[in-house]
Design a protein around this nucleic acid. Structure first.
Lengths: 202, 202
DNA sequence: CTCGACCTCTGACAGATGTCACCTCGACGT
DNA sequence: ACGTCGAGGTGACATCTGTCAGAGGTCGAG
């Protein structure tokens, strides 16, 4: 009885390589590969995999949103998140979206197949060190608006530009930025964006 | 006659997966895998590969510096750069360092083995679209100091902090930043860092 | 209903930032 | 010997940022 897999990663080379790696295992079989989060649900319905391996960083629909969509459309399919960045917030949001496992891309290749089998068996797979970080970092202290403003500030936009984009007064934007800077313990907006991003709060 | 390969990528999962992918080809054999740029030369001397596949983004010694070191220690080994980001400046610097090929991670997996064979045969392998970008973007217009200052500004440091780190006057730092902002067509230091980084100038 | 949390806005303020003009110095190419 | 360029610096200026106090408004929990 082989475990059927769905792979989602925007980098074709990595996707193909992971496929080769997993197909080496006699009890695993990759039945579908997609390059964007938007294609996950359709491919899953078409190929009926047992486990879906999703990357978080994908253009358009990210892996976490894709997880939520997939669990809504086909609750029986287990989801294993595979990501480059072990951001605490990613782990938290992935689990809330219904993922069964969370693997960072710098874990040894040999462990991936085991992770897949465990997830298929109904177990949770989470890197213990990352779970600790997630507990320490906690949930995002930023309010919805503060997050939006920081997101808009990420590309170096001025207060005026952010205000125009979000239809706010410049003073309001400055207030939200100031609050975000205070909550992140940063000294300016750039640092605030960096730490918030590093924690997976954006 | 098999082609012997050396793999360098800081993400163990990707490294292992690429290894699996390439070992599927009957004429290719991965003889060494390392996780940092600093280990490339030693592993190359120990295992005598024909071609080295190096990632650009690695902690410590990056793939481009590793290329230069490797070509100095063992000029006969061909280098194929495999990277996530197709920054024009990366391509230029990789070729100057002695790389024979440059492949972005979102090219189809099937083409990687061919790229390796071509590089081994003494040909150059470069994505045509990326080569165009490299021509258009041209060399970095930033002077050495401007680059240093931008680099120091990347983490959101204030002018005072940058001045202290580089042992410069605050006024000089402001002048360099202003020049960098002007040359990159940005409106502030954050935008300047973003565009310079996007072009591989940092 | 009241309270708290959040959003929105204003006005004022100190400090940081970006720009400009202008200066010296050393290296380099002609 | 000369001009050019980059590095390093100073001083002044307008503008942008970050902070603070205050003042409404909405909305859900208790």
């Amino acid at each position: 009885m082989t475990i059927k897999l769905l792979l989602a990663d925007d980098q074709a080379l990595v996707r193909g390589a992971l496929s080769a790696l997993l197909n080496l295992e006699s009890d695993l079989e990759v039945v579908a590969e997609v390059g964007s989060g938007a294609d996950v649900v359709a491919a899953a319905l078409a190929h009926q995999p047992d486990v879906a391996l999703l990357d978080v960083e994908m253009p358009g629909l990210d892996g976490i949103s894709a997880t939520a969509d997939l669990k809504a459309a086909a609750p029986g399919i287990k989801v294993l998140i595979v990501t480059t960045f072990g951001r605490p917030g990613y782990l938290r949001r992935a689990l809330q979206a219904g993922a069964s496992g969370f693997v960072v891309k710098d874990t040894p290749a040999a462990q991936l197949a085991d992770a897949v089998r465990r997830v298929h068996a109904g177990l949770r797979v989470v890197d213990p060190a990352l779970a600790m970080d997630s507990l320490v970092a906690g949930e995002s202290p930023l309010t919805a608006r503060e997050t939006e403003v920081l997101l808009a500030a990420r590309d170096g936009s001025s207060v005026a530009a952010i205000a125009a984009k979000l239809f706010l007064s410049e003073g309001t934007v400055r207030n939200h930025l100031s609050a975000a800077i205070g909550k992140t313990g940063a000294a300016n907006r750039t640092e605030a964006v960096l730490t918030a991003d590093g924690n997976g709060w954006l």
